[in-house]
Simulated assay, not measured.
Amino acid sequence: MASSPPLAADPADVTAGFRGAMRRLASGVAIVVARGDDLPVGMAATSITSLTMDPPAVLLCINQSAGIHPCLSPGCPISVNILSRHQRDVSAAFGGAVPRDRRFEVGQWASDVHDLPALDDAQANLACTIDSMTPFGTHSIVVARVETVRLSDSVEPLIYQDGAYL
């Protein structure tokens, strides 16, 4: 059996190795939406996970340099839209391929209970309220309580790994 390369100890090597390790982790893709100053703002995200069932809550990790970050604070509503396999165009738009003021022109959107955009044919739509935010390094760890859920009939998630969709 071939031996593995040694573990990295140099900080630059650890950072590069960690980036490579995380690229190997497949993730579902979601669009997170919040209220902006005059229009809703949204971003594609893969760092979303369930946190608890009681109370229902999700955990999101949002880069502090992301355009949506200034719109996030405890008590603010957010919409989390878990994408279906056929929604690569929506993911690309909210990942930066489309200017921010035109992103909601991609896909079919309706309003959720907080009057935020919710993607009509997403795998699931979660209407949430931010409970807490904790800064860590370049990101904020956002805990949001889930208030309403809408599910699609089929289960065909959009999966992202190593810079590409599966």
Rank of each mutant, 00 (worst) to 15 (best):
A118Q: 14
E105F: 03
R24N: 14
I62V: 13
V33S: 07
G75F: 08
V143N: 01
A2V: 12
V80H: 04
S4M: 15
V146K: 02
S4H: 13
C128V: 00
Q123T: 11
L166F: 13
M1C: 09
R23F: 12
V29S: 04
I62E: 00
C76F: 12
A144G: 09
H139L: 09
P70E: 05
Q64H: 12
L59N: 05
L60F: 09
D120P: 07
T46H: 09
D162W: 01
I82W: 14
T148A: 10
L39E: 11
R103H: 08
R85S: 12
A16Y: 03
G107E: 04
S73I: 01
A118W: 06
L116E: 13
M22E: 03
R35I: 08
C128G: 00
I130W: 07
D37W: 07
C128E: 07
Y165C: 12
A30T: 13
P56T: 05
S111C: 01
R23Q: 12
L166M: 09
S91K: 02
P56Q: 02
A127H: 00
T49S: 15
S47N: 08
L83D: 05
A127D: 14
A118R: 15
L39G: 02
Q161D: 02
S50P: 02
T148F: 04
F94A: 04
T148V: 03
I68D: 14
L51A: 12
H139K: 02
R150Y: 05
Y160P: 10
D38L: 13
A26R: 08
Y165I: 08
M22A: 00
T129K: 05
P70F: 05
V98I: 05
V58A: 06
P77Y: 06
A30Y: 06
V32G: 10
R103Q: 15
G95W: 01
S152E: 15
A122C: 05
P55Y: 10
I78C: 02
D131M: 01
L166R: 14
V113I: 15
Y165K: 03
A8P: 11
E105K: 07
C61N: 06
V90T: 10
R88A: 15
E105W: 01
M133Y: 02
A57H: 01
S65V: 05
S111E: 14
M53P: 08
V98Q: 02
D54N: 07
D115K: 11
G17A: 04
E156Y: 04
F18E: 00
I159H: 12
I31N: 04
F18T: 08
S111F: 03
L151G: 01
M53T: 15
R102V: 05
V146R: 00
V106W: 03
R19K: 14
Y160W: 13
L59Y: 01
D153S: 13
A93T: 06
G17K: 00
P117A: 13
A92W: 02
